[in-house]
């Protein structure tokens, strides 16, 4: 059994209004950054999974992403990184 580390990135689907992103976007010009557009705020979830091999672990993380970590109605997910320990 090995331990694999994953990062799951959860973002609101393109086209959906992102009130948090808009708030950040409207705050940046007051700090001098007037050249920023399309700010989107998402979630970053890091987790360790014990599994026989990377393929099994990845499959499980994808299952977690679909069932719990993201809501497919409003969000997309990406499994970002795999690093065996």
């Amino acid at each position: 059994m090995k331990t694999f580390t994953f990062e799951v990135l959860v973002t609101l689907k393109d086209g959906l209004s992102d009130p948090q992103g808009k708030a950040v976007e409207s705050a940046l010009p007051s700090l001098g950054w007037t050249n920023v557009h399309h700010v989107r705020v998402g979630k970053h979830i890091k987790l360790d999974v014990d599994a026989e091999d990377e393929t099994t672990a990845l499959e499980q993380v994808r299952g977690m992403a679909v069932r719990l970590l993201s809501n497919p109605v409003i969000e997309d997910y990406q499994v970002l990184e795999v690093s065996p320990k």
Partner: peptide
């Protein structure tokens, strides 16, 4: 459907 933050935040 689903719920997200209020438009006004």
């Amino acid at each position: 459907g689903a719920m997200i933050r209020n438009r006004s935040l």
